[in-house]
Design a protein around this nucleic acid. Structure first.
Lengths: 234, 234, 234, 234
DNA sequence: AATGAATGAGTCTTCATTCAT
DNA sequence: TATGAATGAAGACTCATTCAT
């Protein structure tokens, strides 16, 4: 039997559950604020009020801690969306819901994490491996489905790659929030979400089909009304 | 060079001028590739082929070097835009030009710098402070002008804050490029620029045309209803 | 148990006795496998299936545990030898028995312990101090007696210090086993023991026989020369 | 171009050459005294009178430093042996020379290194890889050649594997020296070398061939003398 | 002007040991 | 008696920065 490098068992008692949460929360904030490379275990430990060694009792490494922080964040929001989205009808409404939810989530605690994901996710040595990629995929899946279905049904223009649409949707939201953080200003989530939904949807809608559809609709109504009038006057 | 915080005498001879440029260039690449925190003076010095100490002859600190790198990058593109933009007529054309130029610039050497700005520009200790905010402001000024003038002329919808429009424009581009970097794929700049210009512009355009159509439709329906009521009462 | 430095009350119940043995056994293996410095209480505790704190209920410190492990190991083999050796007759046979037993013991679980003794027994701060020296002395006593008696009886050459003979006997065995461990090969204990006994014994035997032969030869030659000279002068 | 992890260039100036030697020497002592695992860079740096960081300017890692220490040690003695051995004639004389040299070298500064080699060389994760194995092979090559040639020429018994003979030769020497270190006593190298050479050689010589050869020789001489006498008297 | 050399201040991580329960 | 939890002390290693030459 070889000597195995057993990392100590993670504490599981009631009391330590709280500590674990505290560490995760502190870590979430620190990673958010300064990014992975600049975040230090010392800082995180200091915020929780424990020694650095204690953190290593709960997490195997800085990397592990970060992965768990990200995982938690994703899990929370993924769960929420998976529960609420099915209750909403209509492509346009689903779209607006996803925009609003994303914006809200990011604004609460995610801006930094998002930056983290984006900037650390590209390291060559894939420090976080496919963990992030997979989480990201799961997280954006609902939006991608909405967009894909919209394309299929003709609600959304089909002349651009889906990946580009994703960037068009998520890019502005991240940008808005970074801007806010950088300028230390609060964001009016509801107003911003409404505006973005509106503007982006208008961009996503098929360019001519839009007017065509309106014209068609109007002629239909007019036709119907005329037929009705004719019938009524008879 | 916009901002500088040099504490030592900068050499002014011809040879030194070249060296300074070489250092800036190497630093730009390194910062781009690995971010501020992970970039090392050793690596930069190594690429230039000088000792680390030499860099400190030209720059007071790593921070200073980075600020100068960013400043240079901004200066280059700002200069380019200030020269070329006036030659282009039409809000829509100017908009497309700016999108294309931004995308092109970022894709060449700016993605990493962009990440740098976004992830380092938020540090608690205000490492780069307002330097970046100011540079960013100057850089986006032309686009902001185009958008503002578009609003004034009625080419662009006026029902949303200008800052939001900026996010709508720049957000997707950054997103697209990070995506590309993360997936190690090249971006077809021209195609992407065209698509983004198209889609975004459609979103930016005042929804008047649509509203007009809708208003017309509504008045049609209302008229029909009135006539129907009249007929029914007859 | 020979030496102990326990500072806490050792449990005396039946259950505890077993646990103590289990800890000692696990510790023996771990120390064997990786040496004192690299052995961890976590690993030992893990193998026993108890918490690290429990070990400290039985042993005052890692050092104490290690000393006890070594003491136990020595005790076992010393007891065995003290029981079996008297049953064997003849210096040569006793010698072979001790070689075989030592080799066998070391190969079973002692190589690592041996390394432990050799490499840790030298520390500046006298980590194990004279404990090991004393154990070692007791352990080698039987062999030393055999050698001393052999010398007295003329079976073994008396022209070298006893201590040197000890090295000649134990050195090769340790060397053989380390070689085996390093090369990850099993040792044929019986064959090796036989070969070593044979070779070493031949070296240990008084060189008298050979000297006698040589002396004879020399006198023969001298005699011949004299006769030759006499003949030549004739 | 990827960011390469360039370790800083090793200093090469005259002044630093001395420092390098000083570090190597201090390291040799420390590793000797406490083994690889227990040796600390702090201790080594302290002895040289420099900061820990300085050592890392010269050596990439603790492992690297240790490998260099070992390499140096081996190189010195290998060079010496390769120069001197050819000047010595006769298997027996070469053997004695190698024993004496090994003993002398070890006693000067190698005991600890030897322990290091033996105890660290067996780690599973082959911390030092084949480096040590190869050095060890080169170092023992001359002795192995002498033994092999002795076997071929019948000077040495051929009924045992060469590897075992190596252990028989080197084992006692290491044992003698460890004993000395452990007991803090000096060794009389010359006397010990002579004794060991004598005793070991006697063990190595073919068991019966020895006496047979002597008998043969004597009869040859006797025969020759008789024939000579007969001729002379005629 | 350039740099070889050195280092102080951290960084992550490990682990024997303690103690309240 | 046993242990979950916590931690102080230390260890290898990094790197921006300084300074004499």
């Amino acid at each position: 039997m070889t000597v195995s490098t057993v990392s100590r068992r993670v504490p599981v008692q009631a009391r330590s559950e709280q500590r674990l949460k505290a560490i995760l929360e502190a870590a979430r904030h620190v990673f958010s604020e300064v990014g992975y490379a600049s975040a230090t275990m010392t800082e995180i430990a200091g915020r929780v009020g424990v020694s650095e060694a204690t953190i290593f009792t709960y997490f195997a490494s800085k990397r592990d801690l970060c992965v768990r922080v990200l995982g938690n964040w994703y899990d929370e929001i993924i769960t929420q969306v998976e529960n609420e989205l099915p209750l909403i009808a209509g492509t346009r409404n689903k779209f607006a819901y996803l925009v609003r939810t994303h914006l809200y989530r990011l604004s609460v605690d995610g801006t930094g994490l998002c930056a983290l994901i984006l900037s650390e996710g590209r390291e060559k040595d894939d420090k976080f491996g496919d963990v992030i990629v997979e989480l990201q995929r799961r997280y954006t899946a609902p939006m991608m489905n909405v967009l894909a279905q919209g394309m299929a049904s003709g609600d959304i223009r089909g002349d651009m790659p889906l990946g580009l649409l994703r960037s068009v949707v998520y890019g502005p939201m991240e940008h808005v929030l970074w801007d806010a953080v950088r300028k230390q200003r609060a964001v009016d989530i509801e107003a911003t979400a409404a505006s973005l939904s509106d503007l982006l949807w208008q961009g996503l809608v098929p360019p001519d089909a839009q007017e065509a559809a309106l014209r068609q609709l109007r002629s239909d109504v007019i036709g119907a009304v005329k037929r009705f009038e004719a019938a009524a006057l008879k």
